[in-house]
């Protein structure tokens, strides 16, 4: 079998593994910025953002939702028949992540450019990491411009600037959203290494996404019931079961993202998951948390998403190093 390039050569390899990295990043970025596929998705997201934010600001102007944290409520306020913008983000961001990467490696094979590129004085590391960075950059760029668009619309429609607190919260939310997309992007990139056909890679990524979106919640609850059965009249066992279900549900990036959205955009959320009355004893219900506290609350979620992105990338990296280049 093919020996992994990096592993057998270990540290004896000459030069930096990142030689040529920025050439790859620049080229891939340019590709993204001019590609029709990205243009369509970005247009879709912008339209969604404009539509939902407009509707939300209409509701807020009509006086629903009180008078605090108006800016954050732009993200979360739904007005029939449209869901709130965060709801859309939960769907569109994975789509964007997958669209960025499902053909990134197999595309090079299919265009027969891979052996030529790797015959240049660069390592495979630089090619793969360059593609990853460019995709992450494109994702960050798109989401940041949407964020700016929303800030602008908020200023125009609500007539009040966001408070510092709100800016911090929404920036944190932006960062988490980028890595939520990053997970799906890294997954699609992994599949683009495993599958030779881009269509297969795209379908496989969508299948995983669908699995987590539609089925994981049910499976988590079934598993919890199976693993921690609750004997009648045992409240402690019930707590146990619910906690297991929650832990299982948090394997899904969608759950993590939804919880972060909830806690970050809604300052009155003081805790995620199960809250026992005794824990609420000292807390005044309805009092908003300071931004830093909310960030602390969602810290594990953010690191979870970042770690998942890195693990998926590392997996793809190992597979790519082992791949036979002959096309």
């Amino acid at each position: 079998m093919q020996q992994p390039e990096a592993l057998t050569r270990g540290r004896q390899r000459e030069g930096s593994p990142w030689t040529g990295l920025w050439a790859v990043v620049a080229k891939e970025m340019a590709d993204y910025l001019t590609s029709v596929r990205m243009l369509i998705l970005e247009a879709l997201i912008v339209l969604t953002a404009a539509g939902t934010i407009y509707a939300a600001s209409q509701s807020l102007r009509d006086g629903f939702g009180g008078d605090t944290f108006l800016f954050l409520k732009l993200f979360t306020t739904a007005r029939e028949p449209l869901p709130a913008f965060v709801g859309f983000l939960g769907l569109l961001v994975p789509l964007l992540g997958i669209a960025l990467a499902f053909d990134s490696v197999n595309g090079e094979f299919n265009q027969r450019t891979i052996s030529k590129v790797l015959a240049q004085p660069i390592y495979r590391d630089a090619l793969l990491f360059g593609k990853f960075l460019a995709a992450l950059g494109a994702l960050a760029l798109t989401l940041t411009s949407i964020w700016l668009l929303i800030v602008g619309m908020g200023l125009l429609r609500l007539g009040v600037p966001p408070t510092g607190e709100e800016v911090v919260r929404s920036l944190w939310f932006l960062l988490v959203t980028i890595f939520y997309g990053g997970v799906w992007m890294a997954l699609a990139m992994l599949f683009s290494i495993v599958f030779r056909q881009p269509a297969t890679a795209a379908l496989a990524s969508l299948a995983v996404w669908l699995f987590f979106t539609a089925f994981w919640g049910i499976i988590a609850s079934l598993l919890a019931q199976l693993l921690r059965p609750v004997p009648p009249g045992d409240p402690l066992a019930l707590i146990d079961q619910v906690q297991l279900e929650l832990a299982l549900a948090r394997i899904s990036p969608n759950t993590l993202f939804t919880e972060v959205a909830l806690a970050t955009l809604n300052p009155t959320v003081r805790s995620l998951g199960l809250v026992l009355p005794i824990q609420l004893h000292n807390a005044v219900l309805g009092t908003p948390l300071p931004a830093t506290q909310s960030m602390l609350l969602t810290w594990p979620h953010a690191t979870g998403l970042i770690a998942a992105t890195i693990v998926l990338f590392a997996l793809g990296y190992v597979l790519f190093q082992r791949q036979e280049i002959r096309a």
Binding site: R9, Q12, R13, E14, G15, T19, Q120, P121, I122, Y123
Partner: peptide, 11 residues
């Protein structure tokens, strides 16, 4: 195998 960058920049 040891000096791939040098080789590939000359070949």
């Amino acid at each position: 195998a040891r000096q791939p960058l040098s080789v590939k920049s000359r070949v």
